[in-house]
């Protein structure tokens, strides 16, 4: 047999991709292979499973909502302006990306817990965060926000500034320009950032556990439920994992479809 004229390098590249792909997909495939449909149904019917799923969807949606509402204008400002200390601010915003989840949990406790920095203020206001659903939302927001902010910032930075200038000369204020030109034209970038943040929020485990605990129906999201079952009911844990993978994949897919669809059409020049 003759060796391909294209040489060994393309073969090496293909081999590397094969290794990467198998390693990354094997665990996911295994989850589906090991789960029998009947187990899946029965474990979903089990106490707490649907409750955990509902909580995961609710908390991650609220967290992503907060992230988008506050993060989009913040990322726009970071992308558009040049000021002293900007680099520092960007780094601070991205810091939670590299923070171990356990550290994030401790940090949140130290800041917002009963004995934390702002604990007194929060208690005086009559708000309870630790060990509550609100606490879960806060933990998810903290951990997932940088994923969105980073993407949003680079999406805004990539915009053609003359679109924004044109909008101003056509009678639109800065705010209107932001809403009607910057957001739609940066749309695909914003949506992919949103998908990343949502995925991260759905899978969040460590910070939630430390800050909000794992109480069925109150703070036990799917990852926490999986962990709880893991030592006693491996089949149940596996079934819940299947559900989480399916929900996350569906989310990622629909976001990708959405960003390519007609209502944002033409955002790529």
């Amino acid at each position: 047999m003759r060796v391909s004229r294209r040489g060994w390098f393309p073969v090496l590249l293909a081999a590397a991709l094969t290794v990467v792909l198998s390693f990354l997909t094997l665990p996911i495939v295994a989850i589906f292979v090991d789960t029998r449909p009947l187990d899946l149904l029965s474990s979903l019917g089990e106490d707490g499973a649907l409750e955990a799923l509902r909580l995961s969807l609710l908390c991650s949606t609220l967290a992503v909502g907060l992230i988008v509402v506050f993060g989009t204008p913040a990322a726009y400002l970071l992308a558009m302006s040049r000021f002293r200390g900007r680099a520092t601010i960007v780094t601070l915003v991205e810091l939670p990306l590299v923070l171990p989840p356990a550290v994030a949990g401790i940090g949140l406790l130290a800041a917002l817990g009963p004995k934390g920095l702002l604990g007194g203020l929060i208690q005086d206001a009559g708000v309870q965060l630790v060990l509550t659903t609100a606490g879960v939302v806060l933990a998810l927001t903290f951990v997932a926000a940088p994923f969105y902010l980073r993407q949003a910032q680079s999406a805004f930075e990539a915009l053609d500034r003359t679109w924004l200038d044109a909008s101003r000369t056509l009678g639109a204020s800065e705010a209107r320009t932001f809403l009607r030109v910057a957001i739609p034209t940066a749309g695909p970038g914003l949506i992919s950032g949103l998908a990343l943040a949502w995925g991260r929020a759905l899978g969040e485990f460590g910070a939630t556990l430390m800050f909000a605990g794992s109480f069925r129906g109150i703070t036990q999201t799917v990852p926490l439920a999986i962990y709880e079952r893991f030592s006693t009911d491996f089949t149940g844990a596996l079934a819940l994992s299947t559900v989480l993978v399916a929900v996350s994949a569906a989310l990622l897919l629909s976001v990708k479809l959405l960003s390519g669809s007609a209502w944002l059409g033409g955002a790529a020049r």
């Binding site: 003359t162 944002l264 033409g266 955002a267």
Partner: peptide, 8 residues
């Protein structure tokens, strides 16, 4: 110069 039409 490049007309700056809004692409969306």
């Amino acid at each position: 110069q490049e007309y700056a039409l809004f692409p969306h």
